[in-house]
Simulated scan of single mutants.
Amino acid sequence: MTQINRRQALRAALVAGAAVGAGALAVQPARADDDQAGTLGHHLPPVPGMHGDRRANELWYVYEQDFYLQPSPEVVAAYQAVGAVAGGSIEGVLYLYRGSRQYGTYPDKFVERLAPARDALALLSGLQLGVLHRYYRHSRLDEGFYYLGEGTCYDPRMPDGGKVHMMNTGPNGEPAVNWHLWHAIARAMTLLDVDARAWTSIDPMIGLGWAAQSVAQPKPETVNPPLEPRVRRRLFRQWRGVGPDEMDVRFDSVPYPPEIP
């Protein structure tokens, strides 16, 4: 995993599990217990040329620094450990997931293959929870995932070729497939009882980000416009409170969610 591509922290990052409560996809006003995170964006230093939500920009910037651009030796080792049981790379988790569902051996065979990497998954999950809680305490993490999918976080601090925090697309603009990988790893976490409650909550946020990117079709080097408010509200409603089994069904759809042509 030392040669992972520029946004494999997002596509292979083991879904940044968040300890948020069920139903977090509701569009909610700020709560008293979210005051620290809610005011954080107002205290972050301005970045010339940055566009989009300030807090979400900072979350994904730090996330990519910690899990791709400057990963610690333990993060690299954890990636390698997961890849070793998934066919050689972290992306193999998606192939294990799809194969298991296709051949009717899900979830048993899927869990069996990934069980040896449980400790590595748990380590990554714990580290990522720390990053997420720094910017989103008890609510509104769904907004961070929405902005990631919408592609409206333009960050001039990022390397050329990927100034926008978004899930990477193919070399010729092919639809992003790594939301599917993210879901597969979320399900692995849940089924292996690694922060299971958190992963169950965050999986619909992965779906929300996937749906937002599928509709918005953002570009990686452009200041992308936001989706219309009515579209945003519809996407949040569609992914609110979706359970694990239904998430599996929805992610059987390729490359876009079933409700999107």
Rank of each mutant, 00 (worst) to 15 (best):
P220S: 03
R197Q: 15
D245M: 11
L40H: 03
V20Q: 01
A198W: 01
M205W: 01
Y61D: 15
P29S: 07
A196Y: 09
A19L: 14
T39I: 13
Y63I: 09
V93I: 14
F67M: 08
Q70V: 15
A37K: 00
T200W: 04
G241F: 05
R31K: 08
A216V: 06
F145Y: 10
I4S: 10
E246F: 07
L235H: 03
A216M: 07
W182R: 02
L96Y: 03
Y136L: 02
P116V: 12
D108H: 13
E64P: 09
G41N: 00
V27F: 08
H42R: 11
A30L: 13
E246S: 10
Q70M: 12
Q36Y: 05
S100L: 11
W182L: 12
A212G: 07
D155H: 03
A117N: 03
N57V: 11
W182Y: 07
Y63Q: 08
E74Q: 15
D245T: 13
Y136N: 01
M1F: 13
M167K: 02
G38D: 14
W199M: 14
S125F: 06
A77M: 07
S201N: 13
L191H: 11
D108P: 01
V20Y: 00
G151Y: 05
S253K: 06
D245W: 06
V47S: 00
Y135L: 01
L141Y: 09
Y95C: 10
Y79L: 05
R54F: 04
E74W: 14
D160C: 12
W210D: 08
G41Y: 00
H133E: 15
V82N: 02
V93A: 05
R157M: 11
E64T: 13
M158I: 05
V93R: 03
K219V: 07
E174Y: 06
H138R: 10
E259I: 12
R98D: 15
L129I: 14
L227I: 11
